[in-house]
């Protein structure tokens, strides 16, 4: 990067300096001492003024170095549902081999609503700081400016720098509970096809308990060992299969999508096979992580027919 490009980049990164509460007191004191020194010519007041000015300079220079060396990237959560907090992270590192970065605060300015703070970022290492992302809509959401701020080193001024971190995140619809009666599928047809998996009584595996599972299915010894409720699946049990239908012409489409999303997530986590009828698009019932993502992506990108 040439110095011109560097200069252009830095000029685009707007820097704002705001006094903190202590900073306002500091400025008031500085003003008083300046007036006193210039009025009286008392050199001890000039000495005090010089000390305060040196603090001001050090504060601003160190704060600028601190922010200028800071780099970050987002680590978005694997799944994002609208109106639901999901834990992602910011990865911070320093491009300067010298001093560590101190007291860095990160905040999303456009979408995502995440914020995080870290006390020290070592000179040559990375620090991952957890941050909760929340989006207010489904579909592709654009993440943009991030405010990186710090009050280091004296806490008198908060220095902000806005960084452009353009990125798009796919946000699934909000998850809403929806049983057979209340689900969006009520409007369509929910097809259930009992299937047998094999010989009766044969152990297929264990999976985490999800809301709606019968309590008798919980295998308590396994739950105690794992530390959370686990459900045992045995061969011979019926594997339910369902197709969730969503009418794209429905007046409350977002509600329909949210309920469908809740149904799909719950059913898949119970081990059911789930399909989707979304307008003209049909996905046959299946299981698995890729299938889940395919269904949720379809819901996230669904549009009312024109």
């Amino acid at each position: 990067m040439t110095w011109r490009e560097r200069w252009a980049l830095q000029s685009r990164q707007r820097v704002r300096v705001r006094p903190t509460r202590e900073g306002w007191w500091f400025l008031l004191l500085l003003g008083g001492v300046t007036l006193g020194a210039f009025n009286t010519g008392n050199n001890l007041l000039y000495l005090c003024l010089s000390a305060l000015l040196s603090l001001l300079v050090i504060q601003n220079v160190l704060a600028e170095w601190n922010l200028r060396a800071a780099r970050l990237r987002r680590r978005l959560p694997p799944e994002l549902f609208s109106f639901e907090q999901a834990e992602g992270a910011y990865v911070l590192w320093s491009v300067r081999p010298g001093p560590a970065l101190v007291g860095i605060r990160v905040e999303e300015l456009d979408e995502g609503g995440a914020q995080a703070e870290v006390s020290v970022v070592p000179p040559t290492g990375e620090v991952e700081v957890p941050a909760a992302f929340t989006f207010g809509g489904r579909g592709w959401q654009r993440l943009g400016r991030v405010r990186v701020s710090s009050t280091w080193p004296f806490g008198l001024f908060s220095r902000d720098r806005h960084l452009e971190l353009r990125e798009e995140a796919l946000v699934f619809p909000a998850r809403r509970p929806g049983g057979a009666q209340a689900s969006g599928a009520e409007r369509g047809v929910e097809v259930e096809t009992p299937r047998r998996r094999g010989g009766a009584g044969e152990l297929l595996g264990a999976r985490p308990y999800v809301e709606g599972d019968p309590l008798r299915g919980v295998h308590w010894p396994t739950s105690a060992r794992v530390g959370r409720p686990m459900v045992i699946e045995r061969a011979g049990e019926e594997t339910r299969s369902r197709v969730v239908r969503v009418d794209l012409g429905a007046p409350q489409l977002e509600d329909e999508l949210s309920r469908a999303c809740g149904q799909i997530v719950t059913a898949l986590s119970r081990g059911e096979r789930v399909g989707l009828e979304l307008g003209e698009e049909r996905v046959s019932p299946q299981q698995g992580g890729a299938h889940r993502r395919r269904l949720l992506t379809a819901l996230a990108l669904a549009e009312r027919p024109r």
């Binding site: 006193g36 009025n39 010519g41 050199n43 000039y46 003024l49 010089s50 000015l53 040196s54």
Partner: peptide, 26 residues
């Protein structure tokens, strides 16, 4: 060190103005 050096620099280089806008400080 930085604070001391800067304080010394400011003290020596700040122009001495005895404006006496308010009461004299003598």
């Amino acid at each position: 060190g930085a604070s001391t050096l800067l304080t010394a620099a400011f003290f020596l280089l700040l122009p001495r103005i005895d404006a006496e806008l308010l009461a004299s400080g003598q």
